[in-house]
Design a protein around this nucleic acid. Structure first.
Lengths: 173, 173
DNA sequence: TCGAACATGTAAAAGGTTACATGATTAC
DNA sequence: GTAATCATGTAACCTTTTACATGTTCGA
């Protein structure tokens, strides 16, 4: 339960990336504030190598505040998918662009999926972390399947003028 | 292709809700700005009933700008799930709280799913819209399945002290 | 030697929500 | 009569990202 701002950034990129993100611009100020509030403590490592490391650890007060926060707040969930905005207006787009975007999305999903699958069985992972990863995996697989099932219907309905009730995207079955 | 700010809000709530959201605080200023830029035009309906309606329509310039926007930007996707943050730290939480949160999430997912399934086959929906809905449906179903499969493992691993390598969340199989 | 990784931070700008302020109408 | 729906908007606030600024060390 200790680490630097840099470590936190890496943690976000490695383990949180499929459900949360944070940049240095929010991490470093937050660490400073938490320290002032006594929720984390600071130890400076003046290593011979690299710049000074500011290693933060959570305090007992911090742990309590964290658990209290997790316990009190109703968990919200927000997503903002420009991919789906795009497909929503698929009829306005040139078919090539649409195909390109769908394929690019599939590639990214596959990449994320591969990554999550590769880290899933790390023995150091708690059940909670594994569950979190499983949710990501399940969701990605579903989206990939939907993408591959719906792709042709989307592109086909595209070459004809946008007739609304002739084609079927059979992802849902 | 015309409507009021109020209509847009409803559209977001009804059709966009599973992948985007917007509040009046962003819709109304945006409409004002778009109008000044000539991308949408304004017609005021002084109906006998209700306050004046400001009905906006997209202009030809606006349509071009919109398509251009959709074509140029690489679609980003960001989600922020406090539910998964919570499960990530499941070992810190009292079991009751965890169960309550998981069940609440399942309820919300089921509700969204029911809604999406109910609107999916509207004949007025284009293939693009249907695809968008299908992605939502697929994703929700996967998450629900993962929730129900993983729930017991998460809660079971919970009563014992957080031993890390004894339990299995078998959502991924 | 050159790029990636290590390491910290700030300031400005962007983007968004919440809460407020107002008021008619319609359905129960 | 009272709640929901219709309808518009602003201002303050909050959160977050982006871009900047700086410098070392390690591996190829």
């Amino acid at each position: 339960m200790e680490g630097t701002g840099y470590d936190i950034k890496r943690l976000f990129e490695a383990t949180f990336s499929h459900f949360h993100s944070a940049s240095y611009g929010s991490i470093y100020p937050a660490l400073g504030q938490l320290q002032q509030e006594g929720l984390i403590s600071l130890r400076v490592e003046q290593g011979a190598r690299y710049p000074d490391r500011k290693v933060y650890s959570i305090t007992e007060a911090g742990r309590q505040a964290f658990v209290s926060e997790l316990t009190q707040t109703a968990p919200s969930e927000q997503l903002r998918s420009e991919l789906l905005v795009l497909t929503f207006f698929a009829h306005l787009l040139p078919g090539e662009r649409l195909a390109q975007v769908l394929d690019q999305a599939a590639r990214q999903y596959r990449e994320s999926l591969t990554y999550l699958e590769s880290v899933r069985d790390h023995p150091s992972h708690s059940a909670g972390i594994r569950f979190t990863i499983d949710m990501g995996i399940a969701s990605l697989r579903a989206k990939l399947e939907c993408l591959s099932t719906g792709r042709d219907a989307l592109l086909a309905g595209h070459l004809t003028p946008p007739r609304i009730d002739t084609e079927e995207a059979t992802c849902d079955a």
